[in-house]
Nucleic acid binder design. Structure first.
Length: 280
RNA sequence: GAAUUGCAACAGAU
């Protein structure tokens, strides 16, 4: 069973969702009874592949069989609920953990905070964040990033900055995700200059930008119609060895098209296809 | 001596 579980996890992580599902069935066919870990792997695999809605059914299958969920199983299920629009249910499970003597961890809180933040329920997210702190849970950069992202996406830039400051005061180091969340917030608020300032701070603080960072900035520059500058970043990105993917191509192509540079845009589109890109 | 079978965060177009 250990071997099958491990293999099933690998299969899901390789993106072979249907094969993963059939492996779960195969476990039963071979006369094993899937354990809490098998279910966790299955749920996690499905959630990552966009089938979070199936969490509910699988969770109740586990319950019916009388399985006792451990912390990680709870965390996986809670994340599945968050990603299928059942954040209230997720929160309820967090409470259930406390009752059952499984103390919620930083991951548990992180999942629910992120779930709330993604549906713009930031005040509740922030309350949970405070609750976790008051319980002495060491919050990490992931949780802070979720909040920066959440506040940023609804335009509460000041609060996003405050979270960022608190993070640094705690002696934590913002990583490329954190910075990207902040940059995206500034871009969406059309504060591109501020975003470029942050881009420099990020580098000063030894955080290396990645392809997502460039995609955010290119998009931001296109939004304020600074197409030439966007194209400079496009080239800089490739000089640094980041291969453009479908999203970065789309960002740049639509930017060029909006600038009326139809010729350049179609040239890029051809290059995209020539490099094996599949237009979506 | 240790050793991971499972858990959370970021970008585009429509």
């Amino acid at each position: 069973l250990t071997l099958l579980n491990t293999y099933m996890d690998c299969v899901f992580k390789a993106g072979e969702t249907e094969k993963g599902r059939s492996l779960f069935e195969e476990i039963k066919a071979r006369g094993f009874i899937p354990d809490v870990r098998s279910y966790s792997i299955l749920i996690h695999g499905l959630v990552k592949a966009g089938f979070a809605r199936e969490t509910y059914e699988l969770f109740y299958m586990m319950k019916e069989q009388g399985f006792v969920l451990d912390t990680r199983a709870y965390n996986t299920v809670i994340d599945g609920f968050c990603k299928s629009g059942k954040v209230n249910k997720a929160y309820q499970l967090l409470e259930e953990m406390k009752v059952k003597g499984q103390e919620p961890t930083v991951v548990t809180y992180g999942s629910v905070i992120d779930g709330l933040a993604k549906i713009d329920r930031l005040d509740e997210a922030y309350m949970l964040f405070e609750e976790a702190k008051s319980k002495g849970i060491e919050l990490n950069v992931v949780v802070y990033s979720s909040l920066v992202d959440g506040f940023g996406k609804v335009g509460r830039i000041d609060e996003a900055y405050l979270i960022m400051e608190e993070l640094m005061q705690k002696g934590l180091t913002p990583n490329v995700y954190t910075w990207n969340c902040l940059l995206d917030a500034l871009v969406k608020a059309e504060e591109i200059n501020e975003a470029l300032v942050c881009f420099n701070s990020m580098k000063d603080l030894n955080c290396t930008p990645n392809a997502v960072t460039y995609s955010i900035l290119i998009n931001g520059l296109c939004r304020v119609r600074k197409f030439n500058k966007a194209f400079v970043f496009w080239q800089e990105m490739q000089k640094l060895g980041f291969k453009p993917n479908t999203i970065t191509y789309t960002t740049m192509i639509s930017g060029l098209a909006k600038a009326g540079q139809i010729f350049e845009a179609s040239g890029l589109f051809e290059r995209f296809k020539a490099n094996g890109g599949m237009p979506d």
